[in-house]
Nucleic acid binder design. Structure first.
Lengths: 245, 245
DNA sequence: GTACGGCGTTGATTCAGATCAAAGCGGCGA
DNA sequence: TCGCCGCTTTGATCTGAATCAACGCCGTAC
């Protein structure tokens, strides 16, 4: 399940040669709470890293020594039971902030799906940054609040929805990813495998596959290939996702 | 399912006659971020209310105009599907802070289990308070982070645990409630009904009941009456909760 | 005191989704 | 080009929890 774990490649402190001013993830992340004139401070607090697809860069239970800001690629966050059962608690993309644990250890693991770039902030440096820029703390609180709302929605899905409702909800959520205040996408690619989807929505690979096939044969979606999804009948999909069937 | 909804009884602005200095919930809530000398500010920002058992005091989808701090009793937070399926996302007690929604509407409903007292902060007043006391914002971020960790744990339960594991996990979590940095309780009362437990752990009433009966006949817990629980074999319960069976 | 209604328990049966099994389908390295 | 391996799909069967059903236990209202 977990592939090998590679030591992430450390590039360099961001402050050195490539300041945050050129970061294309900044506008989408909590870093946009730091004014342009102070970007040097921000850059000096972080180091940039890259991890290959399949590599784990945060491990549940290990000392929570740092925070991470995804600047490229996508990753899955998950928890494991001792016998290997896995629950993916979220997929994260560019601009996502990870590792806000109050406890001494991480509560989840993170594994790169697509080649990931991220900025790493040590606890101490992030604390200093937050003390100097309360606006960033405000943004973090907003982000955490939004994640809490998403987590509650996911609990509803995991606790009370049928397989069909779960898959429909998942596809609709994916179609809305990344598009802010804009119409959701009709067609999009799923970066994760069927196994990842299954572990996210609390089903098995086979049930996810069968359910997708059924949604397609019902004319609600099209699946031109294993990774691409086309939402053919969004209103019907939305009704299914909400259990109105 | 939802009993009648009563308009909560408004008592008075806290600043008026009963300042926060006498609040026994303060030490357990985010309010402890406000220094004693500034308690008047805190009191003036809030109004106190009470709601009877069974009454709903926050409704999913309604404008999120305020935040709530529970000062007495306990409540359940839940989301509904249109056909009435319900997922309880959490039980909250004294000191718990509710309503941190960034969006314009509440993402959940809240209903009193036991007679509830709470302080209500309007968005504007809370914002002013947070601007003046960044320490409170820090505390809120801590609280939100902890809830996020708890939510991820609950996703693991809902997505991947068996009925037996879910009920064992739930009982252990209840046994640890309210005791901070201390040994968990061996015996305790469950304030919620079997139906509430079922909607929290994603099972039916019957399965919760049967599972409790089985745990008792296995000598792991005792259930002297419908509301009381005694943990007889905690190590075994912990193994079950983690799926080590 | 008794009738009623909500809550909890237990039993019988059903069913949605898991498990077991096998075969297609690419992509990639030799 | 071929062969292998991981991912996906599809089919057959099984099973854990849901559903359907009935009854016991209280607390409360009359």
């Amino acid at each position: 399940m977990n592939a090998f774990q590679t030591r992430p490649l450390v590039l360099q402190p961001r402050g050195a040669i490539e300041p945050c001013s050129r970061c294309d993830a900044r506008s989408r992340s909590v870093c946009n709470a730091i004014p342009d004139t102070e970007l040097r401070r921000l850059g000096e607090a972080a180091t940039t890293h890259t991890v290959a697809s399949g590599s784990t860069f945060v491990t549940e239970g290990e000392p929570a020594s740092a925070f991470f800001n995804i600047t490229g690629g996508s990753a899955k966050l998950y928890k494991l039971l001792p016998d290997g059962r896995r629950q993916i608690t979220g997929f994260v993309g560019v601009g996502h902030f990870l590792g806000l644990a109050v406890s001494a250890t991480y509560a989840f693991s993170a594994e790169a799906i697509e080649h990931v770039r991220y900025c790493r902030f040590s606890r101490a440096k992030l604390r200093a940054l937050l003390d100097d820029f309360p606006a960033m703390e405000k943004r973090l609180l907003q982000v955490a609040s939004n994640e809490l709302v998403a987590a509650q929605e996911q609990m509803l899905l995991l606790g009370r929805k049928t397989a069909r409702e779960r898959v429909a909800s998942f596809l609709l959520a994916q179609s809305r990813l990344g598009v802010i205040c804009q119409t959701p996408r009709v067609q999009f690619a799923l970066p994760m495998t069927r196994g990842d989807i299954a572990d996210y929505v609390g089903l098995t690979i086979e049930t996810v596959s069968r359910t997708l096939t059924k949604l397609r044969s019902d004319g609600l979606v099209d699946i031109p290939n294993a990774t691409d999804i086309v939402i053919c009948n969004r209103p019907a999909m939305e009704r299914i996702a909400e259990g109105m069937t």
